[in-house]
Design a protein around this nucleic acid. Structure first.
Lengths: 180, 180
DNA sequence: CGATAATAGTCTCATATGAGACATTACTCT
DNA sequence: AGAGTAATGTCTCATATGAGACTATTATCG
């Protein structure tokens, strides 16, 4: 019921994934592996159904935007970090993170302390209200993650995590420096 | 050089991924596996550095938005599909896909044909110009995908693909129906 | 030490995206 | 057959996001 509204009419996954052109409509499941960027496309596909509707729901229900959502997630892991840290470890743009931080502060969900060693920087901390808000939206994200991964065996899941770790650690190797 | 501008100043991955608090700034790499939605977060992290800057680049360089980019990618795989098909197999919202289709048509990159069996529906086809545009942006996406995956062994890559296939096929099981 | 470059975070403006309404068409049920 | 419901794609309006400029601070270089 609660999750029913997440992926309503506007963003529905296919009812099933056949790729049999003999069906009325030409089968489309093959597109997932058939694009020229098959792996990236599939990652995006899965994530589009997980992250986008989830974040939209949180935004509607709690009135916080993506950068705010992500900022609280990062701060839950570790407080006292800076906006730049959050940008680096989320892949979000600094203007958006900055805007999110200001919004959270305005809502009393976050506080800032200047870094004595570098007056440009600020350490960020969740307030109790921020912590409480985080606690309200994270269970849904966890449940949906669990549902998303339910189809994997324990071994597959471990393998997937290991590979993801590897991909994540490797990001700095290709994501900033020119590849040409 | 060409890719250098993709993940410029505003969206930089960490220079490295240490998680050693002994360093000046508390290590942050642990956040990737330390959030309460570790796998989803990591997927998003990797994709944030792949897809978001790539799409932003294409948008700037070719003047087409995400829904337009994705529409051409899907049509490259198979023409004659409908807007709904694209929504289903991309995870994008119908209003955005619709808007993208109209924009592509206006730019002469796509044409539409009514479905005789259902007057609400339209089959979509790339024009030659659309095909040419696709051919201009897809190599960069491919190259970046390749770079993203360069750290994996062949076996890891196969395993990753198999698991992604499984996750993708499983999406309809949890992404629409309520899980409660 | 002074000039220059880089960094951290914020701001303004433009534009893409999302919510929900809408018209048309198709389907279902009595 | 007709009413009610659902599906398809488009539109309007609101809002989130992105580009680039900006100020203050810090780092680097000769």
């Amino acid at each position: 019921m609660r999750l029913l509204s997440i992926a309503d009419e506007t963003n529905s996954p296919p009812a099933s994934l056949p790729d049999d052109p003999a069906q009325g409509s030409p089968g489309m499941a093959g597109v997932l592996g058939g694009t020229e960027i098959a792996i990236a496309y599939k990652i995006g596909y899965v994530l589009n159904f997980y992250r986008e509707p989830s974040f939209r729901r949180i935004e509607t229900e709690f009135g916080i935007t993506r950068p705010e959502i992500v900022t609280l997630i990062v701060l839950n892991y570790r407080e006292g970090v800076t906006a730049s840290d959050i940008c680096e470890f989320s892949g979000h743009l600094k203007a958006n993170i900055s805007r999110g931080i200001l919004a959270l502060e305005k809502k009393g969900l976050l506080r800032r302390e200047a870094d004595a060693a570098d007056r440009r920087r600020q350490f960020l901390f969740m307030t109790e209200a921020g912590r409480a808000l985080y606690a309200r939206y994270i269970p849904m994200l966890r449940e949906r993650e669990k549902a998303m991964l339910a189809c994997l065996t324990a071994a597959e899941r471990r393998s997937f995590e290991r590979i993801l770790d590897k991909l994540a650690a490797h990001v700095p190797d290709w994501a900033a420096a020119g590849e040409l």
